[in-house]
């Protein structure tokens, strides 16, 4: 897995019920810390069992 293959990372669950939230701390960490987060996520993706979901078609609005 290369960094350029990752389009977006959204960390955590968030639990607000009115608007979507984005973790902002990662913008201010050093490249080394950001790299460590990326590496941990890549390791987790290799490690966790996979379940594929196949959504039904969405209605176009």
């Amino acid at each position: 897995m290369k960094k350029e293959n990752v389009r977006v990372i959204r960390l955590g669950h968030g639990a607000n019920c009115s608007s979507i939230g984005s973790v902002i701390d990662t913008l201010f960490v050093t490249a080394a810390v950001g790299g460590a987060i990326f590496a941990a996520l890549c390791a987790a993706m290799q490690d966790e069992p996979v379940r594929v979901i196949e959504p039904e078609e969405e209605d176009e609005e």
Partner: peptide, 13 residues
Amino acid sequence: LERTPALVALDRD
């Protein structure tokens, strides 16, 4: 991801 709460968007590669 379930054990590390995160959503990751990957390209096809």
